[in-house]
Each structure stands twice: as C-alpha cells, then as structure tokens.
Design a protein around this nucleic acid. Structure first.
Length: 473
RNA sequence: GGCCCGUUGGUCAAGCGGUUAAGACACCGGCCUCUCACGCCGGUAACACCAGUUCGAUUCUGGUACGGGUCACCA
C-alpha cells in the first residue's frame, strides 16, 4: 500500500472546539502511526462567517499541542479557480447543472419544521433556457445531480458498511451564487488533488458521505478511506447529553488553557475519548507515545461524554510531574501578581505544587493568605485529634510565648518547637498542629501543615494571627 | 417526521460465543502518629428490553425502547 496521507480541514471560526481538536489529533495520529503525511487545509469558503485572525488560532493550537503538519496550510479561498474548473467538468459530463431557483422558491419547499430539500426543478432546463438566463445575468448555483434510484454505500473504517438510498440524496449545491464552492464540493476536489488517502472527520458526515462518494465516482477518481469519529458530548443539567457546546463549560482549547489546564493534559485526555490502546491499560501518553500506539482498531463507535472531573485529574497529575523550574515559571508570576513581598511566595509555590488541580485556582486556594478570613471556631473541633475550641485555646496560649521567642523562623525549627511542646505538655502532636494550623489559616482546608503555613506567613503575621485567634476564642 | 448511527457501572472504557465482566475518574471506607492534599490498601456500582441462532450469548441476527446525527447558497 502506498503512503498514507490525512488532513485536518477546519473552518476558521476563531476558536478551536475540543471536538475539532480531537479530530485533528486522531487524523494526525493515524498518519504518523503509519509513517504518513499530515496536511492542514483551511476551509474558509463561507464569506459571511469569516473571522479575522482565525487561521492563526488554528495554527497556534496545533503548535502548542504538538500536532505538526507536513503540508499547508492550504487556503481554499485562494483556490476558487480550481473548484470552478472541476465544477464545469461535471456540468459537461452531465453530473451537474445550473440552477436558477430563487431563495424564495427554495424556502417554499420546506415544511413547517424547516425540513425539506431541493426538488430538482432546474434539472430539465434546456440549453436555450440556460443560455438565456445566463445572458440575463440571473444569479445561479451549480448543483450536483444525484441518481434517481438505487443505493450508494461505502465501508467506513469505524462503522462498517453504510448504505443510503439515493432517493434520500438532494441535488446539493457545489458552487454558490457568490462563486464560492460549498464544503460538499470543494473538500472532495481538494482531498483528491492533495492525495488524501484517509478522510478523518466527525460522524455528522456519516450520512452525507455517499454524496461525496458519488462525486468521486463522477470524476472517475478512486474513493478514499473514510474514518468517521464518534461525537463528543456534554452532560446537560437534566442528565441528558448533547453535542458538546458552550453551555457545558469551556469547550475551546483556548478556554481550557485560560482556565489553567496544560496542553499536554488536554491532549492526553481527549486522546482517550473515543480511542483506547490495544493490549494495554496505559493512561498517560505523550504525543510521541500516541503516535506509536494509535490504531484505528481502538476507535470507538459510541459517543463520549466529556468529563471535566477526569480532565482535572489528568491535569493535576501533569502538574505534579512538572519539574520545579518549569512549574515555577508558570506559578511564580501568578503569585507575584497576587502578593506583596512580605509573604514567602517561594514556599507557597512549593506547597501548592502537589495540590493544584489547575493553575486557575491559585487565587482561590491562596485567598486565606492574602486576607484574614472570618473565623469559624467550630473548625477547632477535630475528632481524630480530639480537639475542642477550649483545648485549642489552651494550646495557643501556651505556644504563643514559645513562638515569640523562636529565633529562626523556618519549617524545621517551628516543627521542632511544637513537637517539643507536645512532648512536655502531653498533648498529642496532631492536636497541637491542628490548633495552630486553624488559628493561622482561619480555614479548614489548607495547602500545607501548620508549620509550613507559618513559614509562608513569616513571624510577624503568624504571631498576629495567633493572637487574633486567641482573642476570638 | 424520513433516513443513518449508537447502547457494558454516574463518566471514560476493555471484552470480539464459554471470564469471578478488566482498568481509570468520581464516590465511600481504612492506613499514613502535622491537617487538607499526595500516596497506599479496600469497597459500592454495568452488559437497555424482547425474540431468534447455538450445547452455550455481553459478544451473532431481527425487532422494540432510548439516545445521537442528518435532511442549508454552514462547514
């Protein structure tokens, strides 16, 4: 078999939907898993929806996810002449025809639900009619002529044989009135011209693919392999699922990055939504590992619900695995923006390393450092350490002078001091730590232990907070 | 509504005629004598339904139900 070649052909909408990114990823992986080529093509034939700078978003996203294209980007709006030329060939061969129907007439063909397609009205136009209309400058489109009977089928690599009665097929538009081609037409021409061997795309195209097959047949071209992918779904409030969209949360790659997710984690997670490695339970994949493991046999047929919880888990794992310097490059600037210099943010950053789920939650997780929260004295109650507000008050009162006299304010010294107090007072170390931690943090869940937090706060703030806590008990 | 596709625990999923039906996330419990977290150990939880084929169906076939997709001068 000759070399495999796939493509990613997004329309420039200004953002990269996660489902789209996954399609790009699988398409890329399919090619690379077999030593093939991967092409990027921008499908910008919709003049109305054009968004400035949208191409760059696509290119940037591919770059930061490690999806590298070997060819392109090809820009369809720069290839208009090519499509027209091929459309004319189909007119000549009788597989396409001019249609002069007005938008109003087309609208009248639809039922009350807005469903209904073209009836082939202009199929029967005579050569004279056509020339006359053309001469009059009437707007027209070029339509593909579908067979009247029979069925068209193809074998999808994922779904197997798909057959559609030709009577279901409309005479779809190939060239619009503005002279631009439709997706339905130009993607076929491009895929052929670019030598695409495997068309990888979402399964919303599963039932329209026979039309494209017919186009290949009309040109006498060999049909490509089709690889349709199950859709990505989101969970609705009512428990149902629907195509992943904004109401489900962040759905574009940029949104996810903005929320503090790592590109590697996103890629790893979405790679596993609809695909699973054969003969392995491996969960963590770099893009290079994916290239080695990917195969079409592992593709799923059923739609997958995007689970933010699992993405979070992947992200937290990726953060934990980050080397300190790399991690610091991301976290320190964020902390510097939040805190003034009397807080030990280096230490804080360190404490956060093993606990962060996304970089977006840093502000929330460190709010208790920035300001003294309202104290809830019930936090002093802990069954495991058998602490009560009364006991904690005693502990704090007794520890305060000890802390005030401590010379070196670092974690080890603080820990040694409290441990020693625990031993001499006979109060469990856990109870001592609990009392101090709550007094200093003023909240139950903290990104570190009592002594670690005191190191972050520094001596003055720690003492102040303990005094305040005692006064409130 | 017509047509097409799908259906294993809450979610992602393995399975491809005979299994105690993997694993992961989430959840619950335990351990870790500095909390939360991390980590470790354990637990709850699934083959949509009905026929048929077969010695035997989660695996094959048909139907039903449910879910999704599609019927554009959008891609």
């Amino acid at each position: 078999m000759s070399e495999i070649k796939t493509r990613f052909a997004p329309s420039p909408t200004g953002f990269m939907h996660i489902g789209n990114l996954r399609t790009a990823l699988y398409s890329y992986l399919l090619a690379k898993s077999q030593g093939g080529k991967f092409v990027l093509r921008i499908e910008d034939t919709d003049q109305v929806r054009h968004v400035d700078g949208a191409e760059q978003v696509i290119i940037d996203t591919l770059k930061s996810t490690g999806i590298e294209y070997d060819e392109g980007p090809y820009i369809q709006s720069e290839r208009l002449g090519i499509y027209r030329e091929y459309a004319d060939k189909l007119i000549e061969s009788g597989h396409a025809y001019y249609c002069f129907c007005t938008p109003e007439r087309l609208e009248s063909l639809k039922d009350e639900k807005g469903i209904g397609g073209y009836d082939g009205h202009c199929r029967t136009l005579t050569q004279e009619d056509i020339q006359k209309n053309l001469a009059e400058g009437k707007p027209y489109v070029i339509r593909q002529k579908m067979p009247d009977s029979g069925t068209t089928s193809y074998v999808d690599e994922v779904y197997g044989e798909v057959s559609i009665d030709n009577s279901e097929l409309r005479d779809q538009i190939m060239i619009k009135a503005d002279g631009y081609p439709t997706y339905n037409f130009c993607h076929v021409v491009d895929d052929y011209l670019m030598g695409i061997t495997h068309v990888v795309r979402g399964n919303e195209y599963l039932t329209s693919t026979p039309k494209y097959c017919l186009l290949y047949d009309a040109f006498g071209w060999e049909r490509p392999h089709y690889v349709h992918l199950p859709l990505l779904m989101g969970k609705d409030a009512d428990g149902n699922v629907s195509k992943l969209s904004k109401r489900h949360g962040a759905v574009s790659f940029q949104d996810l990055i903005g929320d503090g997710y790592l590109p590697e984690a996103v890629v790893n997670y979405i790679a596993l939504l609809g695909w699973c490695p054969k003969d392995s339970n491996q969960e963590f994949f770099t893009i290079d590992e994916l290239k080695k493991s990917f195969s079409m046999e592992g593709l799923s047929k059923s739609p997958a619900v995007f689970d933010y919880e699992k993405l979070k888990w992947f992200n937290s794992e990726y953060i934990k695995k980050m080397p300190d310097d790399e991690y610091g490059k991301i976290v320190m600037p964020i902390l510097e923006k939040i805190f003034s210099d009397n807080i030990n943010i280096g230490k804080l950053s360190e404490l956060l390393h093993g606990r962060l789920i996304t970089f977006g939650e840093i502000g929330e997780r460190t709010e208790f450092v920035l300001k003294r929260l309202d104290m809830d004295n019930s936090l002093y109650i802990n069954k495991k350490n058998k602490t009560t507000p009364e006991l904690c008050k005693q502990i704090l009162n007794e520890c305060l002078p000890l802390l005030e006299n401590l010379e070196s304010w670092d974690n080890d010294s603080l820990f040694a001091l409290l441990k020693e107090y625990s031993a001499s007072s006979g109060i469990k170390a856990g109870a001592v730590m609990w009392a101090v931690r709550i007094a200093v943090a003023r909240q139950g869940i903290t990104p570190g232990g009592a002594t670690e937090l005191m190191e972050v706060f520094g001596k003055n703030e720690s003492i102040e907070r303990i005094k305040l806590a005692i006064s409130e008990l």
